[in-house]
């Protein structure tokens, strides 16, 4: 047990946190009755997946993939920058996540307007 380094602990923490977030969100989506809480659950799943992506792209002691005056010379010496591809993908995913959340919320508003409730166990008629 004396060989555990900080990287391993960080890895367990970050991967564990992302898996935990995904599971919490899934639980909220499956178990909660209130529609707003379900939408929040979807957002939590999103956050977990983003964290997972960024964690996989991380390189220990890596810098952010932005060149500065100093950074240009350091590239040739092999100083590592973290993988930029997952970060760019997460940027896309965040925007899509926003779109999903916004449309879901507007559907919730529409349902609330029709049924006067946002709890799915109180919406008995499954037709409009």
């Amino acid at each position: 047990m004396e060989n555990i380094d900080i990287n391993q602990i960080l890895g367990i923490a970050v991967f564990g946190a992302s898996i935990g977030l995904i599971l919490i969100g899934l639980y909220a989506v499956l178990m909660k009755k209130h529609l707003i809480k379900i939408v929040i659950g979807l957002s939590i799943i999103d956050a977990g997946i983003h964290l997972l992506f960024i964690a996989i792209g991380y390189i220990s002691n890596g810098t952010s993939p932005i060149f500065s005056e100093k950074g240009i010379s350091l590239v040739s010496e092999g100083t590592k920058m973290v993988d930029p591809v997952p970060q760019a993908l997460v940027l896309t995913a965040i925007v899509i996540g926003f779109g999903v959340t916004a449309v879901a919320l507007s559907l919730v508003i529409r349902l609330y307007r029709h049924h006067k409730t946002a709890r799915i166990d109180q919406i008995k008629t499954l037709k409009w």
């Binding site: 960080l10 367990i12 991967f15 898996i19 599971l23 996989i56 220990s60 040739s76 092999g78 590592k80």
Partner: peptide, 27 residues
């Protein structure tokens, strides 16, 4: 279901070394 999902996420991720240099030689 959560246990199954959690396990199937944990299993591949336990093979992934956190912070490893996966992008290789930049030159």
């Amino acid at each position: 279901l959560l246990a199954v999902v959690g396990y199937s996420l944990y299993k591949p991720l336990s093979q992934v070394e956190f912070g490893a240099d996966r992008i290789g030689d930049i030159e």
